[in-house]
């Protein structure tokens, strides 16, 4: 009964909430508007925006030493998570069946295991850094912790459900993923989309000035 609810209505509700919520948040930001810049541009805002959207994937040398742990853990977590999310066979099957009807090749099992280990290690290190480092401890709020814990639980149950031999584990994983989807638009998890906007706005401003940001 509960399983059917998680597998059916709750899934569609959470997906709808996620899509509408994300679109709503993005539209709200764009609607806040940016005042036109009347100064004469030295360079191209468009090229500046594109440049910064991609260049910030690589950290500046000035922070690579003292922020080494965070940077490495950040890459481990994000790359690992993307592989788990989009290249694990059960996810590809699920997406094909429930959303797009399209499928693509999955990564081999050993890649999945390595990606999972990277993602877990990265997330745990990032969270430990968050609670132990004086700077991040000062900055962090409830949203940061809820986001981290939710992602951790979704990944943990996902790995436990991997064998797909226990329906209960699969349902728990799906339920947590649904909670995650519903929480997503109301949280800092939105950075997964809005980082393009924040990088773009800064890159455009700096690009007009002729600065590679």
């Amino acid at each position: 009964m509960i399983g059917e609810f998680i597998d059916g209505p709750l899934w569609y509700f959470s997906l709808t909430a996620f899509v509408i919520g994300v679109v709503w948040r993005i539209v709200s930001i764009v609607r806040a508007g940016v005042r036109p810049d009347l100064s004469i541009a030295r360079g191209s805002a468009g090229r500046g925006a594109m440049r910064t959207i991609f260049s910030r994937f690589v950290p500046e040398r000035t922070v690579t030493t003292r922020s080494r742990l965070q940077l490495i853990a950040g890459y481990m977590f994000h790359v690992g998570l993307l592989i788990l999310l989009f290249f694990a066979q059960p996810h590809i099957d699920f997406i094909a069946e429930r959303i797009t009807g399209l499928s693509w090749p999955a990564v081999p099992h050993w890649v999945f295991i390595v990606a999972a280990e990277f993602a877990f290690a990265g997330l745990i290190l990032l969270w430990l850094h968050r609670v132990l480092n004086p700077v991040t401890r000062l900055l962090s709020d409830m949203d940061d912790h809820i986001g981290s814990i939710l992602v951790f639980l979704v990944m943990l149950t996902g790995c436990l459900a991997l064998a797909q031999s226990h329906e209960a584990l699969r349902l728990i994983h799906l339920f947590l993923a649904e909670v995650f989807l519903i929480y997503f638009p109301f949280s800092k998890l939105m950075h997964a989309f809005t980082f393009v906007m924040s990088r773009g706005y800064t890159g455009a401003t700096m690009g007009r000035k002729g600065v590679n940001a």
Partner: peptide, 19 residues
Amino acid sequence: DARISSYLTSCVHCGICAE
């Protein structure tokens, strides 16, 4: 404005700016 809204939405409190 949209810039500040996107900035505050995107910030994940990583604290790298401190360095």
